[in-house]
């Protein structure tokens, strides 16, 4: 019995040994190549079949007119159509508002919370869990809760407004600009992000900042305590230490979160979809992805939609490259 169990337990090891010995049979001059092929094959197969191939398919599709990709080859016609379309630019504006409205706010808030969390020793795990909680929940379920909170009739946000003596708001149903509402109508209603868009941003800040906090905590804990302490001994104040020591040392973290955050924000879909019922039909909450999505799935303009998504992908790649080039250089690496 025990022998059987032992044999069984040794099975993985024997398998690994067998594979290793197989790898050793390859000529030495091939170096790591056989091992690399074996190790990367599963991941590359999956990515190849379900990411790269569809990507190339999408690209060839973008050069065709008509519906469902069965139209004639029209070269860059779809690209030009998109660039000429007012709706395309409108949805790009929404995406840009969203990126600008969420990433800096999330970075600042998460950094603040992480900083405080890092300083305390008691109940740290408890608080960290608390802040990370929204991140692990499904957007669908959380959005259902938030939609109820945002409900203009009897929703909690309007109850709070009444409590502080402010008129009830339309929240997710309000297409007018936030600036317009805040300034009492001094700014044109179509300028700046709409209140509905701001509600979506608020939801995503709530949902996503847990991730940033945890990453910031990781960054903070990698800073040797002596560095900060020696700065303090040298007479630097709390804020000065923060500015001259902590922030520069954290710059790789901030940079990483910035890049990942921007890529994700450009691709934001679920929260828009779940909060505004399929992106809503109002332009003020339709970002580029939702625009592409409706052109693709609802109206069947595959070529046009893939052309727009290709431009979006290129924009994301270019933006990431720019960040890497200009911001990444200044990032301080210890």
């Amino acid at each position: 019995m025990t022998r059987m169990a032992e044999t069984f337990a040794a099975l993985p090891d024997r398998l690994l040994a067998l594979l290793d010995s197989l790898l050793d049979r390859f000529p030495r001059r091939m170096g790591d190549i056989p091992a690399a092929v074996l190790l990367t094959a599963p991941a590359l197969l999956v990515l190849g079949a379900f990411s790269f191939t569809p990507m190339v398919n999408a690209l060839t599709l973008s050069l065709r007119g008509g519906k469902h990709g069965d139209g004639a080859f029209i070269g860059l016609g779809n690209y030009l159509d998109a660039l000429r379309s007012g709706e395309f630019w409108q949805s790009l504006t929404v995406t840009i508002y969203y990126v600008l409205g969420t990433i800096p706010a999330m970075l600042a808030f998460s950094f603040l919370i992480a900083l405080v969390l890092h300083r305390i020793s008691r109940a740290r795990g408890f608080f960290r869990t608390l802040y990370f909680l929204p991140y692990v929940t499904s957007v669908v379920a959380a959005a259902m809760v938030w939609r109820s909170l945002f409900n203009p009739r009897g929703g909690v946000f309007n109850l709070l407004m009444a409590w502080v003596g402010v008129a009830p708001q339309q929240w997710l149903l309000e297409p007018r600009g936030m600036l317009h509402l805040l300034t009492g109508g001094a700014v044109n209603a179509s300028i700046g992000p709409s209140m509905a868009l701001c509600c979506v941003m608020l939801f995503d800040i709530w949902h996503g900042c847990g991730f940033m906090i945890v990453v910031f905590l990781a960054g903070l804990s990698s800073i040797p305590r002596e560095v900060e302490e020696s700065a303090r001994i040298d007479g630097a104040g709390g804020l000065r230490t923060l500015w001259h020591i902590t922030l520069p040392l954290l710059s790789p973290t901030i940079f990483f979160l910035g890049v990942v955050g921007v890529v994700r924000a450009f691709q934001a879909f679920n929260s828009f979809y779940a909060l505004t019922q399929g992106g809503g039909n109002t332009q003020d909450t339709r970002n580029l992805i939702l625009y592409i999505y409706s052109q693709f799935y609802d109206y069947g303009y595959w070529g046009y939609a893939t052309a727009a998504s290709t431009m979006l992908t290129l924009a994301i790649v270019a933006l990431t490259a720019l960040q890497w080039r200009f911001v990444g250089r200044r990032v301080h690496y210890s």
């Binding site: 991941a43 590359l44 990515l47 079949a49 379900f50 990411s51 790269f52 191939t53 569809p54 990507m55 398919n57 999408a58 599709l61 890529v263 450009f266 691709q267 879909f269 992805i289 592409i292 999505y293 693709f296 799935y297 595959w302 939609a305 893939t306 998504s309 290709t310 979006l312 992908t313 994301i316 790649v317 990431t320």
Partner: peptide, 21 residues
Amino acid sequence: ALVLGSMMVPFEAIFVPNFVL
């Protein structure tokens, strides 16, 4: 780089080709 690049393709853009597959 290709692997990293696949992070930048919005999933919604490759949805139907995947479904067809």
